[in-house]
Nucleic acid binder design. Sequence first.
DNA 1: GGCCTTCGTGTACAATTGACACCATGCGCA
DNA 2: TGCGCATGGTGTCAATTGTACACGAAGGCC
Lengths: 221, 221
Amino acid sequence: MPLPRPQIQLSVDCILLFLDGHTLRTLLIRRPIPPHLGTWALPGGFVRPDESLEAAAARVLAVETGVRDVYLEQLYTFGDPGRDPRGRVVTAAYIALVRPPAPEPREGAWTPMDALPDLAFDHLTILDYARQRLKYKLEYSPVGFRLLPEEFTLKRVQDAYEAILGRALDKRNFRKKLLSLKVLKPLAKFVREGPHRPARLYRFEEEKWERLKEKGNVFVF
Amino acid sequence: MPLPRPQIQLSVDCILLFLDGHTLRTLLIRRPIPPHLGTWALPGGFVRPDESLEAAAARVLAVETGVRDVYLEQLYTFGDPGRDPRGRVVTAAYIALVRPPAPEPREGAWTPMDALPDLAFDHLTILDYARQRLKYKLEYSPVGFRLLPEEFTLKRVQDAYEAILGRALDKRNFRKKLLSLKVLKPLAKFVREGPHRPARLYRFEEEKWERLKEKGNVFVF
DNA sequence: GGCCTTCGTGTACAATTGACACCATGCGCA
DNA sequence: TGCGCATGGTGTCAATTGTACACGAAGGCC
């Protein structure tokens, strides 16, 4: 029995996130074609018949923004009829996390998540959903480190957590807990970032995290 | 600019779960058509151009199993090329939770989650993913109650948690914590379920849970 | 009435969370 | 060169939460 003729278009949309100090920013582009020509939108595109969804997301990012080698994670699939005026388009949304320094986008703008403009389609809904997911996920997984450079200070980690959770955390308690997880390797390197004492650099150790995970432990802030 | 011609089929698959004492069971059906004719599989079907994904899942359940009015939640979208030998089929998987008494399925069998047979396509992967999701979700949301009748004893709640988490919980601690959340209303009703003291019935109160959630509290067992 | 089974409850200790303040270090400037 | 300024880095105590653990109560059955 052959497949029926497809009648639904499948696309991917990418929420590309970047942490700029205490500000979480996402890359928006202006729609180059109708509908919503000129409106801000998430980078996205149709899935090709021979590529996986994740590959499609990676391709879209590379083509539309020039960004490569990012962490990708499926967020949710939005498929209400009517979300695209052209016809039935179902979209798989992917979260993509990039480390500083922020790649200069081929086009579009890094837009603060808390000052979003009018967006095409249901992209505002998608962004809200992404923010929620990231917030929850921070509590039991080390996604935060995917937004930091390979080597970072504890302050930067705290900045990341505060930006995503949207609230201030106590410095001493934060460090105590973070270090007690034993997933960070202190380096013999320091950075000067102003007229004050330099801060130690750390590195996140993936395999230590894996071991923790097997024992069922989780982050909780 | 018109839409390109669709080249990808979109389907939904349903993980219908039911709690049978300490056993979590899912409804599997034998594939009535090739490929994998006669092999056990999740109930599923193609999405129609005019229905939402969730509506498609509900329809598939109603038609293939006769089950209606269930809790539905999108699990994940599986879209690797090659997952269906007929061509490119991307499937949105939905978890569906039903309360006892177990509906008698129009076809298929309630199969224990820990004794799954060979399955068509990537349906084993999908079921593993579902089990994981349910386990995590139990920790911060009241999904467990969606597997129980409207009125239930504390023992039944504990059974549900133990079945899903796969480990025994201490009765006194479990009850203490559950009741401290103040989301259960004790009823002036008791059930006799054997030659022993009857147990009190409780009811889950959705709006009390909503209030808790706003304050940021979560279940953790 | 005695036995069996599950119901329902409290305490004590350990671990974790959360509040809170001060000295250290290095830069810049007078 | 020394003083001021800014951030780095650390510990203690109280409150809360988690965890281990045992026994009388209620009702059916024989």
